[in-house]
Computed example of a mutant assay.
Amino acid sequence: MTGAYSRHWRLMLAVNAAVMLGVFLHKLTLPPYIPYIHLLVDYHFGFIKRALIGAIVGLFTAKVPVWLVFALAGSVWLMTFALFVQLFRRTFGIERGQLPLLIFTAGSPFVFKNFLFTLGHFDIYGCLGAIILLLVPAGSLAYVLFAALISAALVLIHHIHLLMYVPTIAAIVVLRHYLTRAITRRDLAVGAGALAGLGVLFLAAQFAGTMPIPEADFVHYLQTRMVDPSRTALLQFAYVWYQPLAKEVQDTWARLPSNLLGVPVYALLLWLHAPLWRQLRDTINALSEQPHRQIVIAALIVISLAYAVMFAMVFDYSRWISSWVVCMVLMLHAVKTLPATRPIAPIDADDRKTTILGWIVTVIPRVGIIRPF
Rank of each mutant, 00 (worst) to 15 (best):
Q236C: 01
L270P: 06
W9E: 06
A82W: 03
I37R: 00
L245P: 11
P264V: 06
L256F: 01
M12Q: 05
R319D: 04
A18D: 11
T341W: 06
A334L: 02
Q98F: 08
H292S: 15
L83I: 06
Y239L: 03
A254K: 13
R181N: 04
G58R: 09
D228C: 04
T2S: 11
T118F: 00
L21Q: 13
F84E: 15
L87F: 01
A171H: 03
Q86H: 10
V363F: 03
H44Q: 15
N285W: 09
G22C: 07
G191T: 12
M20Y: 00
Y33T: 15
L179F: 06
V309Y: 09
A148L: 02
S322E: 04
A189Y: 03
Y143A: 09
I94A: 07
L332E: 12
P365S: 11
K49C: 00
F122P: 00
R7D: 13
P100D: 07
R10I: 06
L222A: 05
G197P: 12
E215S: 05
F84T: 14
V173Q: 05
I160Q: 11
I56Q: 07
M313Q: 14
H44K: 09
M1W: 04
L134I: 09
D316L: 02
A55I: 11
A196K: 02
R281N: 14
S6A: 15
V174F: 01
V367I: 15
T118M: 09
K247I: 07
A274E: 10
S318M: 06
F311C: 11
A62I: 01
V302W: 09
L188T: 05
R89Q: 04
F92G: 06
I37S: 01
Y178S: 10
L102H: 13
G54W: 00
F45M: 10
T232H: 10
Q86L: 14
Y266S: 08
A14M: 08
S230W: 10
L256Y: 05
A152C: 11
P244K: 09
P257L: 05
A51E: 10
L203Q: 15
M1I: 00
T283L: 03
V69T: 11
A196I: 07
D123I: 01
N259K: 09
A267C: 05
V335I: 12
L25S: 08
Y242G: 08
S288W: 04
T355C: 10
Y266H: 10
M20T: 04
F237G: 10
I37L: 05
P167A: 12
R90C: 02
A298T: 13
L83R: 13
I321G: 04
G358W: 01
N259I: 10
L101M: 11
D282F: 00
T61P: 01
G368N: 12
G74T: 09
L141P: 03
A62Y: 05
Q279D: 13
I303R: 15
P35T: 15
P339S: 02
A308V: 09
A267M: 12
V363C: 12
V69W: 08
F315W: 05
Y125N: 05
A14Q: 05
P212V: 02
A170R: 10
G199W: 02
I34M: 14
V41C: 03
A55S: 15
A286V: 03
I295E: 04
H38P: 00
L134M: 06
H158M: 02
A182W: 07
L78Q: 07
P339Y: 00
P229N: 02
